[in-house]
Structure formats: structure tokens, C-alpha cells
């Protein structure tokens, strides 16, 4: 699936994560900004990558600003951003949810 437009989901508030997806040409590129990147960076990237892969998104630039979000929050925000970026907000992706 191709990114149709840049999309944003989530907030910069404590315990949340803000995800921005935009068109990419070089696989899934994640630019992660997190105070806990050292300990949990790989986990955060894995959750984001899994969701994007479930959406069949292969080339995308991800800008993620994490404020200590739990995995379920990261997943929810990535799904919201992906649906906006793919312009499929009105067609819930049940198999991903």
C-alpha cells in the first residue's frame, strides 16, 4: 500500500506518542525521539513496524516523538496515522485491529 498523504496522530503529552507518516522510497525509516530510546527504542520501533507491515506499507518515513507510551498506545496511534495516510479512515482494517 502506498502512502497517499502525510498524516499525524497522537499527542506530545505524557504517556502518549505522536506519529507522523509521510511518503518514503527506502523501506520503513523510523526517526524516533524518546527519553527511553536507550532501553525501549527497539521495542517501540518493533511495534510501529509490525502495524505498518500489517497494513502492507513497505516504503514510509516515520517520525515518532514518544512521551513514554505503552505498546497498546503506540499501536493505536500508528493505526490511526496509517489509516489517515492511506485515506482509508472510513474502512476499518479489521484484520489489523
Amino acid at each position: 500500500m502506498e502512502i497517499k498523504k502525510t498524516a499525524l496522530a497522537g499527542t506530545l503529552e505524557s504517556s502518549d506518542i505522536q506519529i507522523m507518516l509521510s511518503k518514503g522510497t527506502n523501506g520503513i525509516q523510523i526517526d524516533l525521539d524518546s527519553e527511553v530510546a536507550k532501553s525501549f527504542g527497539d521495542d517501540i520501533r518493533r511495534v510501529i513496524t509490525t502495524v505498518l507491515t500489517d497494513f502492507n506499507i513497505t516504503d514510509v518515513n516515520v517520525k515518532a516523538v514518544d512521551k513514554g507510551a505503552l505498546d497498546c498506545v503506540i499501536k493505536a496511534r500508528t493505526i490511526a496515522a496509517a489509516q489517515r495516510a492511506l485515506d482509508t479512515v472510513n474502512e476499518p482494517a479489521w484484520e489489523v485491529l
Binding site: 499527542t11 506530545l12 503529552e13
Partner: peptide, 24 residues
């Protein structure tokens, strides 16, 4: 207020409003 709470809320809101207008 905890340091940064309001600041993060304000910036989040402004970025979300710009995103609505297609400005990223």
C-alpha cells in the same frame, strides 16, 4: 503544574490544527 504539561498540550494542539490544514 508539572513542568512542560501545558507547553506540550499547546504545541500538540497547534500541530494538530496545522495538520488538519495539510501543513506538516
Amino acid at each position: 503544574q508539572t513542568q512542560g504539561t501545558y507547553f506540550n498540550m499547546i504545541v500538540t494542539e497547534l500541530l494538530a490544527r496545522l495538520a488538519q490544514r495539510g501543513i506538516f
